[in-house]
Design a protein around this nucleic acid. Sequence first.
DNA 1: TATGAATGAGGCTTCATTCAT
DNA 2: GATGAATGAAGCCTCATTCAT
Lengths: 218, 218, 218, 218
Amino acid sequence: MTHVPHAAPGKITKLNRVERNAWTKQKIFDAATKVVGKYGYAEASVARITEEAGVAQGTFYNHFESRQELLEQLLPKIGLDMVRFIHARTGTAHTARQEIERFSAFFDFILEVPEFLRILNEAEFFAPIGYQKHFDNISTAYVRILRRARQAGAIIDFSDEEFEAIVQMLMGARGYLSRRYSYAEGKVTAPPAHVISAYRKLVTRGLFNATKDNGHER
Amino acid sequence: MTHVPHAAPGKITKLNRVERNAWTKQKIFDAATKVVGKYGYAEASVARITEEAGVAQGTFYNHFESRQELLEQLLPKIGLDMVRFIHARTGTAHTARQEIERFSAFFDFILEVPEFLRILNEAEFFAPIGYQKHFDNISTAYVRILRRARQAGAIIDFSDEEFEAIVQMLMGARGYLSRRYSYAEGKVTAPPAHVISAYRKLVTRGLFNATKDNGHER
Amino acid sequence: MTHVPHAAPGKITKLNRVERNAWTKQKIFDAATKVVGKYGYAEASVARITEEAGVAQGTFYNHFESRQELLEQLLPKIGLDMVRFIHARTGTAHTARQEIERFSAFFDFILEVPEFLRILNEAEFFAPIGYQKHFDNISTAYVRILRRARQAGAIIDFSDEEFEAIVQMLMGARGYLSRRYSYAEGKVTAPPAHVISAYRKLVTRGLFNATKDNGHER
Amino acid sequence: MTHVPHAAPGKITKLNRVERNAWTKQKIFDAATKVVGKYGYAEASVARITEEAGVAQGTFYNHFESRQELLEQLLPKIGLDMVRFIHARTGTAHTARQEIERFSAFFDFILEVPEFLRILNEAEFFAPIGYQKHFDNISTAYVRILRRARQAGAIIDFSDEEFEAIVQMLMGARGYLSRRYSYAEGKVTAPPAHVISAYRKLVTRGLFNATKDNGHER
DNA sequence: TATGAATGAGGCTTCATTCAT
DNA sequence: GATGAATGAAGCCTCATTCAT
């Protein structure tokens, strides 16, 4: 399922109060996504957001307690879209292949929702609560996936704690790669093929050859 | 080599104009490091920095064009300290062991210079130019290291382009891991052992078993 | 007669349009009394009052032209309750004793209607028209009482104009004393006995001894 | 000593930094006095005050932590002027005559500093800390005066506690009288003679005749 | 060169009132 | 008549930067 901003209600449809209310809130939300995606959290003033949404500044506070409250909701909400998107694109087995699919789907999602990248990367500092929430969501799900792969025999000799660390690494890899390869002056582009292949190699056989001296005894 | 703030000039020494000048600039610089490390870029107002430095606000602008200019210089400067620190702690061979040493040394450096973590993580958004500079420094050096390892036979079947991507992944792994494991309410702590072991495993043999279905044909 | 908030109409009673209307207005009125008494005029926003009344904000403007209009009505209305209360507690003679009774009854009323104190004290600035109205009510009645006492021979050698000034003084005394002695962190308490006795002494024999030098010739 | 707004520094005088600083603060202070005196605390916005002072809004915060901080300082400062003013106009004996002098001097002061009245009356709600401070100042001094009069034999049969209550009454009398008689649409006028005489009578012989029934036994 | 007061744009938020349903 | 979302003016405060001394 892809992320689609809610279409404006058709002119024919008469909205009742509840619907109008939800629609206004959604307009603000969409505007915020757009503004943060384009200018970043720091420049996402209430004035800018409401202007983009086409409502008065005061209206904002009929729907959100504060600017911060809205900002905190941004990432978790889009994050769910991402999870669904990736899930839909991933096979049901538990092998490395599916991990590569997830990896690729992440970049596909970025292309679909170009605001996501900036929202994701900046949230840590500007919307820490939302960031935490999002990260917990992702992290939990990811660890579960790895556990299943271990049960299926596709992964061996990793403890649960190590899985947690691994998830951080894989998330970090995605984050940094997306910054490096998917940005081009505000535009979002697909990562080159060697990024995918490098990831596959790292994940399927590591970086260094197996040797007797693998730093273990440190 | 560890990061040492420049000592105050001895009372006996009469400083000439040039020296006084440099000394004032250094004071501002050190103060900025401290303030950003403790409160983050967003809270690092010129007022706060100059107060910490013990100079007047106006003095700031005798040494830096703008607040931003100073902030951009912060990370590259400390980044160099880091490179030297890690280099000093790493053996001269080109095996996985050295990679693990580098990884560990990164965390050791964080313990020595607790401000670094915050400066590194936030710089991307608040000092993008400095971030880029720092990142290029690191990236170039890292790729060179990997190339040497390849020459030495410790790594095989990775192209230069793939190395670049790998470096992003390894940096991302460090970044995310340090956030997750080295922060504890403002204090900086050493990462648990399973973080190191997980990294070693990932780097020496990957995450998934070698199988026939490794996602290659995508 | 004590101040009794209008009881909710019994469930059985079907209200016609006019009654419903009056009942809604009364709810708003009672809510305003409560809110102003507890938080003061400044914090008595329309939102707060209507929430307390259990009606929508818009409903407010079906019954009052503006927020201010309601606020202006608050004091005069409760003021009448006070007059009746004090009257009921005061003997029919015209001596100093009755004045002391009135004084005491004022404080008793405050205990019965704790909102009154705040409404009275703040009205001057936040509801000046209502304040004036209330004050004229009281003042007129008070002067009349003093005149009767003069006719009865209990007061001598005061002109009507002086009575007016005296009334201001006595009202001022009540006002300041109530602030000083009847407030205790939002709670209303009875004034200590020495307040009553001091008032009696002032009113029956003044503060200073009669001397030849009483400042008359100024 | 009368209250005189600080004269603008002569053009000839070159002010050093400290003096300029103090002068700016004083300008803001004087402007606030003027604005609050004319429009009341509620309308005394920072914008209005700084405009009146002829400085930028930001300048305000170089001299005061917040709008409230300034407002709290207003009354105590002018209150001291009042105390000095009254003291200078009062004889050294301890009889009723001096009390009348104090009373009259209060109204004279109001004429000299017309802003005082509004500042005094509104402070209770808009600057409660400053109000308390002022009131404690006045109250303490006033009780001391009454005690001396008692020692001198000019007052008899009042306890210290009763003095405190009396002071509240006398302050309240002044407060209410000044509102009633000294205001005339923003202008301040002298109170009519019968106000003074009524006060003298109240203070020297009370309001009611001495009778056997003076309400004592209540 | 150092100082620090002055500047003023811009940010967030509140709230009385309006109005379409 | 009741509703409650929408409005937008106005308020307080922050802060990077300038400039006269």
